[in-house]
Design a protein around this nucleic acid. Structure first.
Length: 111
DNA sequence: GCCATGGCTAGTA
DNA sequence: GCCATGGCTAGTA
């Protein structure tokens, strides 16, 4: 009997759930890929969340730029990191020299 | 085999 | 910086 055996079911995240979560993040706050995944039931799906955001069909109303890495660094952005930084800056969020978000622990919302 | 991640470790300053 | 993760996709057969 192998206790390590894992039943090969695959759990998928519904993109709409991600978007719904995102639109209630206040301006000036951020969350992480992992936090979103955890909130939707499986913290291991952080990468999938990133992929979903990459395919965000409506960047105007879904603020993808508020999602960053769990280590406080900025993460990716479909329209270029420069734009992501600018969007964050417009909400009063500053990026430090080392690429890390100022006061990350204070403005991070984990739900 | 890729990837918009995460966590942990070595090893620098 | 390295490796585990897990779903997805291109591209082969």
């Amino acid at each position: 009997m192998d206790e390590n055996y894992k039943i090969p079911i695959s759990i998928t995240i519904d993109p709409n759930d991600v978007y719904k979560l995102l639109i209630r993040i206040p301006n000036g706050k951020v969350t992480t890929y992992g936090d979103i995944a955890k909130q939707l039931g499986n913290k291991k799906l952080a990468r999938s969340v990133g992929k979903i955001l990459h395919n965000n069909p409506n960047p105007i109303i879904v603020p993808c730029h508020k999602v960053v890495l769990s280590n406080g660094k900025i993460g990716g952005y479909a329209y270029g990191l420069k734009m992501k930084k600018n969007l964050l800056k417009n909400e009063g969020i500053r990026i430090l020299k080392d690429g890390t978000i100022e006061n990350f622990h204070k403005i991070r919302v984990e739900y």
